[in-house]
Design a protein around this nucleic acid. Structure first.
Length: 756
DNA sequence: AGTATCGTCGTTTTT
DNA sequence: CGACGATACT
C-alpha cells in the first residue's frame, strides 16, 4: 500500500501493530499525527468498521485536521463514521444519549468556567461566608480537582484526610460548598466541563449494560496527547478498553505541560504497568528542526529527572545558532524582536506567517505588540478572551440556553435584566430565594409570579410577567423554527441588535460585529447537510442542537477573519503553541521568576513542568530560535529587576550566539535612567550570583580592575587592560587584546574574566 | 436602578 | 498598571 511507504520503519510498525495495547512515545516533531492518521486508515483498510473506532484528541482543531487527513486517505464516507473528537465532546455526546440513566435530561446545558465560578460565588454569598477566605477561584479549583480525581461531593465531605487539610487551611466548609454546588448544577440541569468526564465515569461504573455497549462499540481506541490526560480521563479509557484492550496511546512525556490542571504524567509513565504486554514504539527522528535546535532542546530536557528516556535526533542541517538577546527593558526586548523579524524577513525571504513570538504569560504581549505596531509589522494574538467568553456573546447565548433548558440558573440570571427592563438586584434575589425555597427553577417562579406570594410591587410584577412572556415566546419559536430564525428573532426582539447598532463607539461596533458573527455561524450551522441519523429527528437544526455543538468550541476553532488574510506574525503563550510549528521562533521573557514562574521554583516537579514548557517552546522552531530576556520589567505597575532564566544556561554555549557588544552599544532607546536600572540589576546579581555562563562581571570585580590586569574575553580572547575611565555603572576599560588589538569595553556588559 | 469611585488581585488554561 | 467586583452615591 502506497501510503504506508510514506512512513519510516518505526512509524510504520506503530501504525500497523493492530492487536493489543500500544504506546507510541513520540518526540517533538517526529510525526505522531502522521502515525495516528495512517493507523486509522490502515485499520479501515484491513477491514475494521469505522463505526468501531474511537479517536480522542484534546482540541477540536486537532480532531478536525485529523479527520480531514483521514478522509483523504480512506474517503469521506469512511471518515464520517469515525468517532473522532475531544474527550469532552465525545463524552458529552454519550452523556446526552444516556442522560436519563444518571437522572439528567438530555438537553442539559454545559456551564463554562465563568458560569460555574459565578454559581460558586452565589453559593458562598448565600452561605454568608467571607469571600476573602473562600475565594471563588480557589473553591473552583478545589472542586475541579476533586472531580478530576473522581471524588464526589459526599465523598469529599466524608473524607477525614481532606477535611483535616481544609480545616488546617481554615476552610472547613469547602466540602459543604462542593456539595451544594453539585446539587445546584443538577437542579439547573447543567454540567460543568469536569462533569462531562466525571459523570461519564459514574455512568460507566454504575451501569454495566451501558459500559458493555460502549466497550463493544469502541473496539479500537486511539488517544492523542496522552501525556495530558487526567485521572478521570484515564479511568474512562481503562474501563472502555478493558474488553478488547485495543488501545493505542500517543504522547510525549517531555511535552506534558498541563499538570497544573490535573493532567497526570504518571498515566504515561506507568502505562506499561497497566498493560504489561504493551508494545512500545519510540519515534525519535525529528523532521521539524535543525540539529542545533534539537540538540539544545535535548540538553534542556535532560535536566529533568522524571522522564522516559528518548534519543531525539534529526537528519536535518545544523542550521543557525540559537540567538540570545539581552535587553534592558521589556520595551527594548520588543524593539529588538521587531527589528530582528524585519532583518530575517529581508535576508531570508520569509513572510510574517513564518514567525512566532512565544511567551510565558499573556501580560507580556502588550510591550511586544507595541513594538511590532511601531514598526508596522502585522501580527495576530492568540488566546486572551475567547469569542464565546465575550459578554455580548454570552448574553445572547444565555437567551438561547434558557430556551433549550428552562432550568438553567446562570442563563436566567444573565438575561433577567439584560437589556435593562427594570428588574434589579433586589427583585432578582427575591426570585432566587423563592426558587430555592420551593425547589423550582427561577423561570418557573417567574412564570407564576402572580401565584407566588412575593413582596414585589405591582409595577415590577408586570415587568416580570412581560419578561416571562418574552421567554415563553422564544421557547415556542425555538421548537418550530430552525436555529437561525430563532436566533435572529431573539437578537432583534430583545433589542440587543439595535442597542449595539446605534452605539457607534469602537466597542459598540465591535460588539455588533461579534453578534453578527455569531448569527452567521448559526446560519452556517443550519445549512449543514443532515446526516442519516439526523434525518429522523424532529428539528435537527434547532437552536438546542446548535448549542450542543457550540458549547465546547473555543477560539482557535473559529475561522480567521476572512477580510484580512495578509500574513501575520503569531503571538501566543507557549501553552497555546503546543502542536504548532514555525520556521522562526522567538521566546521572550526568559527571566527567573517569570520563566520559570516564581510559583514553580520551590518544587522540583513544578520546576520540571516549566522546563518541559521551555522544551515545547524550543521545539516549535524549524530553522531558528531566538531567546531574549529583559533586565527590568514592569510587574503590577512596579519595576522589577530580573536575572536571566536558569534555562538559558542549560543550553551549552557553543550552540548560542550572543549579540556583539558593538551591537548592544548601538541599541536604540537607552536612556540614562535605564543605565541606572541595569546597575541595580547588576547589584542584585551580586547578592545572588547567577550560574549562567558568560554573564557580565560583577561590580566587585570591576573595582578590582587596574591598568595591567590580564583578562579573557569570550570572543576577543586574552588581553591586558591599558586604560580605565568613567564611573560605575558606565565605567569603561581599554583592553589591548593579543589577537585583535585595542578595544573599548563597557564593563557592565563585557563578558570578561579576570586572569591571574 | 443605574453610575461613579474604591479596593483587590494578579501563571499557564486544549475543554 | 489595569481589569473586575463591591460598595457608595445620586
Amino acid at each position: 500500500m502506497s501510503y504506508l511507504d510514506q512512513l519510516n520503519d518505526v512509524q510504520r510498525n506503530a501504525a500497523t501493530h493492530i492487536d493489543g495495547p500500544v504506546m507510541v512515545l513520540a518526540g517533538a516533531g517526529s510525526g505522531k499525527t502522521r502515525v495516528l492518521t495512517y493507523r486509522i486508515a490502515h485499520l479501515i483498510d484491513t477491514g475494521a468498521d469505522p463505526y468501531n473506532i474511537l479517536s480522542l484528541t484534546f482540541t477540536n482543531k486537532a480532531a478536525r485536521e485529523m479527520k480531514n487527513r483521514i478522509s483523504q486517505l480512506v474517503g469521506e464516507g469512511n471518515s464520517k463514521a469515525l468517532w473522532m473528537g475531544t474527550f469532552h465532546s465525545v463524552f458529552a455526546k454519550i452523556l446526552r444519549y444516556e442522560a436519563e440513566k444518571i437522572g439528567y435530561p438530555s438537553n442539559f446545558t454545559i456551564y463554562d468556567s465563568d458560569d460555574s465560578k459565578s454559581l460558586i460565588r452565589t453559593i458562598i454569598k448565600e452561605m454568608n461566608l467571607d469571600d476573602k477566605v473562600y475565594k471563588p477561584q480557589l473553591v473552583q479549583r478545589r472542586i475541579s480537582s476533586a472531580k478530576n480525581g473522581l471524588i464526589s461531593g459526599t465523598e469529599y465531605q466524608n473524607d477525614t484526610i481532606i477535611y483535616n487539610d481544609d480545616l488546617q487551611a481554615k476552610k472547613p466548609l469547602l466540602g459543604k460548598i462542593y456539595g451544594t454546588y453539585e446539587k445546584r448544577c443538577f437542579k439547573a440541569s447543567a454540567m460543568d466541563f469536569d462533569d462531562l468526564l466525571y459523570k461519564t465515569n459514574i455512568l460507566l461504573k454504575n451501569h454495566s449494560d451501558v459500559l458493555l455497549k460502549y466497550q463493544d462499540k469502541f473496539k479500537y481506541i486511539l488517544v492523542d496527547e496522552f501525556q495530558d490526560t487526567n485521572f478521570a480521563q484515564s479511568n474512562i479509557l481503562k474501563m472502555l478498553a478493558a474488553r478488547h484492550e485495543n488501545i493505542c496511546v500517543v504522547g510525549d512525556d517531555a511535552q506534558s505541560i498541563y499538570a497544573f490542571r490535573g493532567a497526570n504524567i504518571q498515566n504515561i509513565l506507568q502505562f506499561k504497568s497497566l498493560y504489561p504486554d504493551v508494545a512500545v514504539f519510540k519515534l525519535e527522528q525529528n523532521y521539524r528542526s535543525t540539529k542545533t535546535i534539537v540538540a539544545a532542546a535535548n540538553q534542556v530536557i535532560d535536566n529533568n529527572k522524571e522522564q522516559l528516556k528518548k534519543d531525539v535526533w534529526t537528519a536535518n542541517q545544523d542550521g543557525d545558532s540559537i540567538k540570545l538577546i539581552k535587553c534592558l527593558s521589556e520595551s527594548e526586548e520588543g524593539t529588538f524582536i521587531a527589528s530582528e523579524i524585519l532583518d530575517i524577513k529581508d535576508n531570508e525571504n520569509a513572510s510574517e506567517d513564518d514567525f512566532a513570538i512565544l511567551y510565558r504569560t499573556n501580560a507580556q504581549s502588550r510591550a511586544l505588540e507595541e513594538a511590532l505596531r511601531r514598526k508596522n509589522i502585522k501580527y495576530r494574538i492568540y488566546g486572551g478572551l475567547s469569542f464565546y467568553q465575550r459578554k455580548e456573546i454570552k448574553d445572547l447565548l444565555a437567551y438561547f440556553k434558557l430556551c433549550s433548558n428552562p432550568n438553567d440558573e446562570e442563563a436566567f440570571k444573565r438575561v433577567l435584566n439584560y437589556p435593562a427592563r427594570g428588574i434589579g438586584k433586589t427583585t432578582e434575589s427575591k426570585i432566587m430565594m423563592a426558587a430555592s425555597e420551593e425547589g423550582k427553577s427561577p423561570l418557573a417562579i417567574v412564570n407564576n409570579v402572580n401565584d407566588a406570594h412575593l413582596p414585589i410591587n405591582a409595577a415590577t410584577k408586570n415587568r416580570i410577567l412581560e419578561f416571562a412572556h418574552l421567554i415563553k415566546s422564544f421557547q415556542n419559536l425555538s421548537l418550530e423554527k430552525d436555529a437561525y430564525e430563532t436566533a435572529q428573532h431573539i437578537a432583534s426582539a430583545t433589542g440587543i441588535l439595535k442597542e449595539f447598532y446605534s452605539d457607534r463607539t469602537p466597542e459598540g461596533i465591535s460588539r455588533y460585529e461579534n453578534v453578527q458573527e455569531l448569527l452567521s455561524a448559526i446560519k452556517e450551522f443550519t445549512e449543514i447537510e443532515l446526516s442519516e441519523e439526523e434525518k429522523g429527528s424532529e428539528n435537527p437544526r434547532s437552536l438546542s442542537v446548535f448549542l450542543e455543538e457550540v458549547s465546547l468550541l473555543t477560539d482557535t476553532d473559529i475561522k480567521d477573519n476572512k477580510d484580512d488574510e495578509s500574513p501575520k506574525v503569531s503571538m501566543m503563550t507557549i501553552h497555546s503553541a503546543k502542536g504548532l510549528e514555525f520556521p522562526y521562533v522567538f521566546i521572550a521573557g526568559l527571566e527567573e521568576d517569570l520563566f520559570p514562574s516564581q510559583l514553580s521554583v520551590n518544587s522540583r516537579s513544578d520546576l520540571e513542568e516549566e522546563r518541559r514548557l521551555f522544551y515545547v517552546a524550543l521545539t516549535r522552531a524549524e530553522k531558528k530560535a531566538t531567546l531574549s530576556f529583559a533586565a527590568t520589567r514592569f510587574k503590577y505597575g512596579n519595576m522589577q529587576y530580573n536575572e536571566p532564566s536558569r534555562f538559558i544556561s542549560e543550553i551549552s554555549q557553543d550552540l548560542i550566539e550572543s549579540p556583539t557588544i558593538q551591537k548592544i552599544e548601538k541599541r536604540e532607546l537607552i536612556s540614562k535612567k535605564n543605565y541606572a536600572l541595569v546597575n541595580h540589576a547588576v547589584r542584585k546579581k551580586l547578592v545572588k550570583p547567577s550560574q549562567s555562563a558568560g554573564s557580565a562581571i560583577s561590580i566587585e570585580e570591576i573595582n578590582q580592575l587596574t591598568v595591567g590586569t590580564k583578562v579573557n574575553h569570550d570572543r576577543f580572547g586574552k588581553g591586558e587592560i591599558t586604560g580605565l575611565e568613567g564611573e560605575i555603572p558606565n565605567r569603561k576599560a581599554t583592553v589591548e587584546f593579543q589577537n585583535i588589538g585595542k578595544k573599548q569595553l563597557l564593563l557592565k556588559f563585557a563578558k570578561l574574566q579576570i586572569l591571574k
